[in-house]
Amino acid sequence: MDETEIRRLAVGHVLSILAVVFSLFVPPLLLDEFSILGTHLTWLCFCSVCVIAVNILLLVTFKPNPSTKRSSLSSKVNKLYRSCLYFFASCLLFHGIIVLYGAPLVESVGETFLFAVLLSSFTTSRSLCFLGPNFHAWVRVFSKDGAMSVWDHSLQITTICTVVGAWLGAFPIPLDWDRPWQVWPISCSLGASFGYIASLLLAPFWIYWNRKRLTYKRR
């Protein structure tokens, strides 16, 4: 197990966490009357954009899954195009899943869709940056023995924690406490964000702890 790789991973995770923190503290400088609860939709947009930007930054700086082949410009453009397509499709897919789980169908469509975008940027955009628009690779990574690098492991952990966080985030909605954060989709997006941040914090430690067990085949 390469410990330098884990260290790089940790740095990458800190950057990702900073993206979420950034989306909390920078918008108030630019906008009046910004708060997570009050202008939740703005925050959702900001957070998604920040997270995606940091993921792209990670892709450029860390190159988690370096491709052996030299790729031409056209294939790069093609890849970019397909990534965008995948991202958009995943937003729609998340939207559909959320509605099937019981989100309102017609009213607050915007909220639901932005929540789907947030989930996509936490999960799909990371996958796109680490694995590329390669659906087969995704399927491989998300199975028991599919992870081939620390980055794959981190992807597994963050995705699962984000989704579970979002699922748990729906629990306070029916309670009669009348708090502002119980409004759809605030508690869910907060849950997803907490899950995401917690997994980012814990993943390096977990991987470090289990580094003896996790042996990857060099490619």
């Binding site: 491989r140 199975s143 028991k144 023995d145 599919g146 081939m148 085949k217």
Partner: peptide, 27 residues
Amino acid sequence: HWDGKLTLPTFTPLGSESLKPSLTPAY
């Protein structure tokens, strides 16, 4: 899916270099 029951058993993650094309698993 996590248990790998949805992919066909030809896929072996710890396979050798020569098996690389089969890294794209069949479902």
